[in-house]
Structure formats: structure tokens, C-alpha cells
Design a protein around this nucleic acid. Sequence first.
DNA 1: AGCGCGTTCGT
DNA 2: CGAACGCGC
Length: 686
Amino acid sequence: MMSASGGGGGSSGTSIVWFRRDLRVEDNPALAAGVRSGSVVAVFVWAPEEEGPYFPGRVSRWWLKQSLSHLDSSLRSLGTKLITKRSADSVSSLIEVVQSTGATQLFFNHLYDPISLVRDHRAKEVLTARGIEVRSFNADLLYEPWEVNDPKGRPFTTFANFWERCLSMPYDPEAPLLPPKRVISGDLSRCSSDTLVFEDETERGSNALLARAWSPGWSNADKALAAFMNGPLIEYSKNRRKADSATTSFLSPHLHFGEVSVRKVFHLVRVKQVMWANEGNKACEESVNLFLKSIGLREYSRYMSFNHPYSHERPLLGHLKYFPWVVDEGYFKAWRQGRTGYPLVDAGMRELWATGWLHDRIRVVVSSFFVKVLQLPWRWGMKYFWDTLLDADLESDTLGWQYISGTLPDGREFDRIDNPQFEGYKFDPNGEYVRRWLPELARLPTEWIHHPWNAPESVLQAAGIELGSNYPLPIVSVDAAKVRLQEALSVMWQHAAASRAAMENGTEEGLGESSESTPVAFPEDVPMEENHEVVRNNLTGLVRRYEDQMVPSITSLVSIEDAETTSGIQNSIGNSRAEVPTNRIVHEEPTREDAAFQTTQRNNALHWNNFITGPLYDAEDSTAESSSTSRRERNGGVVPVWSPSASSFSDQFVTEENGIHTNPPFLPRHPQSHQEINWRRLSQTG
DNA sequence: AGCGCGTTCGT
DNA sequence: CGAACGCGC
């Protein structure tokens, strides 16, 4: 055996560095550990079926392809190359690579989405059992989720408190690591690469356009960061209102694939902020705070995903599961196609479809319209974002949609409806954005550009517009939406109260399974990508239709999908709403937020507990240690282990309040919230 | 100037 | 809903 030259306890030998969403050589702790401990086999495993319904969309796959080839050439210049494996099971592929290279160690960086939590835990268990030393690292966050806790050692449930704590932690985020000077390659003579196919013929044409606007890869990410810091960062706070100003950082796809380390971004931006503060430049300091807040939201999305691994499919506020979503695929289609009759919404949806990109403001507009005006189930919208966004990111998008939907403790009120007409004049005062993406409205004067339905007939004629023909009338009026939303909310509260009453009577085990508590399934026969009837063929050699994607390959998650498909909501009659159960009468005064939850949820939670045997991130990590001020050891040989019971605050919440010893996924609404008031008012009148 | 208002905005 | 702003006196 040769000895490790780098010291630091690295044992000599070959290590596998498993790349996932950390496609960079700079500030990559797993790669650095591999380099330190001997020779390196760099591996990327493409196993999209593991993602269940979240098979990456076309543009996201395009990005990944470019980014991987970029990483490969970087690794080649350092002395090795990237091994790529096509797989139905990442862990099996890793074992293959272990066997063909004689590697004795596996290093990787943490991910926090629910699927990765389960998969990575399994990887660690299986490989450790085979005598492989497995170590994992934080490369994606300023602080690990279990490091950031309130004074009582519990996870935060509101963003502001979380972020304030992050910014005042007793120790700084780890400083970024330099890229290795050289990588000693493991023996790859018996380890072959699979050719990865990321696009089919029908997608190639659309993808060709992407290269004009975007340059994936870690060195391009660096350039994007530098360009942003030297320019738009200064004006970030001033320009954030405009729909199409080029003042966003455009870093999000780079960050999603880990082409640039968030810690590096943080350090550079922070230094700049200090510089500006010294010059007394108040506005710039403000801009930086705002930009850092968006970094903070990204952090928070991982934090929430870790603490609430169901949040991508279930509202974090319990009562929202009773909301009678309008299950109307016609609305859904109109929204996707940008034919809702609201110019700002439609322009946004056309831009999204055409480019895979949307300014953050417009994301808020279209998703808010989706949830509040159309009242479609938010998970459909989130899934469409997932399929079409270049920077599709499960954790961030989940947080965004839950925020918009009013299902977070500190999100917007559920009954607030934003009016796209007014937002249009706010974010696109001259109508330039609308005219760019809706050519049929190009000749309409600015006065009417955001509400063509009010325009005099003569004006419309002069602009060549025939409403209902070449541009739609609003599919739902905002006033009608307000009325409908109020009705739906009262139905929701009645259901919540009825369910609560049933729970307190200790009966109704079956209530949760019947209808209202299960999330609405994705529409089965609607391809998310309009132009492709066969959505993702030729990637696996099999023809995959959309519904194929609904079957996750991880058993613990199948139960959720199963539960969804039995939901009665989409089967209900009339206006597509679940009806109030007639045999349940509301007469109890609820004393607090609906922290109670249904049997199905409990069962699902138990599936997780069953699946994840043993704590993934040890309890000491998530509570005691992180609440202390001592610095957590970063590089220990211990792989952090996650488990729902160790990570979920809501767990403790309900245990204390209700004496229920399991893992409820719901949070209490923020005190003082409108919804709590609403709750009382409704239950008094009900 | 300081105060009282309406309006906007909020992760 | 409240805090933070912007206006007019």
C-alpha cells in the first residue's frame, strides 16, 4: 500500500467520487477528499427513472448534457475523465464501478430532495456493508439543515427567522476550496462508460436554440457570476420590479446543477457588500441584501425539504388539504398555452414555453393566477414548471408554489388574489413584455394592453384583435374568482372542522382515505409538453408516455401516488369540487390550527419510517449538537444519516400537543395570521 | 418639520 | 393583518 501524501487521515487507495448536482471541480469537497486520499474514479450515474414523476424535462436534460461534457473536459485536463453510467438503479451501478476499479471508498456531496435522501441513505448502507468507506459532504448549502435551529434547538418554521439565524451563526460558512491541481486517475481499464442519451430527435431542434442563450458548465457559471457582480448586482433592488430587465443573476440553472458553489457566491458577494458599506453606499448594500435573500430562499428550500420531505406533494398547512381544487384540464391547458385572456399571464407562459426561462416576478404572477384565479391544484403547476424550466429545482419550486398557494406558515394569505391587470402595469408599464410574447396584441395601445377586454371595439379593430377569436376573453373574471374562492374556503374550513370533530370522537378511521384529504393526482392523459405526443421516447429504448412517469421506482413513494389516484376530488361531480359530507356537522370551536391529520398521512409517514431504517442524520446532529454553538466537525468519516423522526419539527409539535407519536407533515400557521382569524370567524358562523 | 392619512407589500 | 412607505398638510 502506498501512503497518502496529503495527510489529514486520508487512507491510500482508490475512491469513487460520485457526481450528481455538484458538476464542478472547484469547491467540491467530495472531489477534494478523493484527491487527498489517493486516486480517483469520477462517476456520474444517469438513472432518471429513480426520480419518479420528476423525470427531468427537455431543457433541464439539455443543460445537464452540456454540463457533464464540460465537467468531463475539466477532469481530463486534470488527469482523469468522467465515467458515465446509464442505470435503473444508482446504487447497483456504484457497486459495478467499485468492482471494476477496485475502489475502496465512496465520496459524494449531500442532496436534500426526498428521493435523494432515501437513495443516498441506501447507497451508504449497501456500500458500507460491502466494506467500502463512505463519506459525504456539504457542498450545496451555507449550513447543513440540522445546523440551523432556534434557541430551543428546533428547526425554524418561518423564513425570516431562519435567514436571520443563518446570517448570525457563530461560525462562518466554510470557505470555498480551490480546484485540485491534479487528479490521479484510478484504474479505468476495466470500467466502461455508457453513452448517455439526453434528447430524442423531436427535441433536438428546440434544443439547438438554447445554446444561443445559455452556456452551461462550471467555468461559464463563474463568468456569469462575475458578470452579475460587476454589473446588475448594484441595481438589483432598483430593477427587481421590471418583468424583463436583464438584472437577474441568471445563476439559477448553474446553481441547480452545482456548477458554481453557493458558498463561493456568498463569499464574493459578501466581500463586495463590505466594500460598498465602507464607501457608505447605502443603495448597493440594500441590493446585496436582497440578492443574498434569494440565496437564502434557496437555502430555505433545502431546509424545508429536509425537515418536511413531503412538501413537494402536500401543503405544509394541514387544512389546505381540504381545499376543493378546481380540477379542470381545460383551464390547465389554457394556462400552459398562454391563452387565459390575461396578457401578462399569457406572455409569461409563452416565454416559459419558448425559452425555458421566466423572470422571478412573472413566475409569481403566473403561479398565483394558477392557484388563486383558476384554483387549479398547485402540484399540477409545479409539475409543469418542472417539465419546462431550465432551472427546474424540486426544492425551490416546491417552496415557491407553497408560498404562492398560501400553504406555508409564513406565506401569502390564501384568500388574497392578485389582479394580473394591475400587476401588468406595475411590472410591464409600457407593455413591451406583453408585445414581445403576444404578437397578436402588438398593436394595442398601452392604455389597454393589460386589459383588452375593456378596450372599445374601434380600438380593438384598429389593432386587428377580435376577442374570443385571435385572442381569448378572460377565461375566469377576477371578480368571479374572488367569489368562488370564498365559497371554496368555506367548504375547506367545514371539511377541516368536520374531520377534526371526527378525529376527536375517535372514529372515522376511514375518513382520510375517502376523499378530501388526499392530494389531487396529476392529470393522466395530458402530456405536459404540448408539442410532443410521445413525451420522452428513445431515451430508454422504450416509449414512455406521460403516465409512465407517474410510477416512481422507489417503493416508499409509491404509496403516496397510490393514495392520490384514489382521490375522490377529481371524481366529484358538478363544478368539480368535493362536496361537504352531509353526515358531518360543524359545531365545535376549534382551539388551534389543524395540526391533526388523517390516517392516510399517518400511514404514509410510517412508510417512510419503515423504509428508512435507522437514523440517517443522527438525532444528536439535528438537535443537541446543532443547537450548541460549537462548530460541527465537517470531515468526519461519519456519513450523516437522515430520518423523519430526527428531522421533523412538526413531529415534536404534535407529540407535545396531541400525544400522537408519529410523523405528521403539517405545520402550525404563523400566529396572528389571517387564516387563524378566518378559522374562528367561520366556525362561529358555521 | 412632524404627523396623519391612504397604499403597497410581504418567502 | 401590520409594517413600511409616500403623500399632503
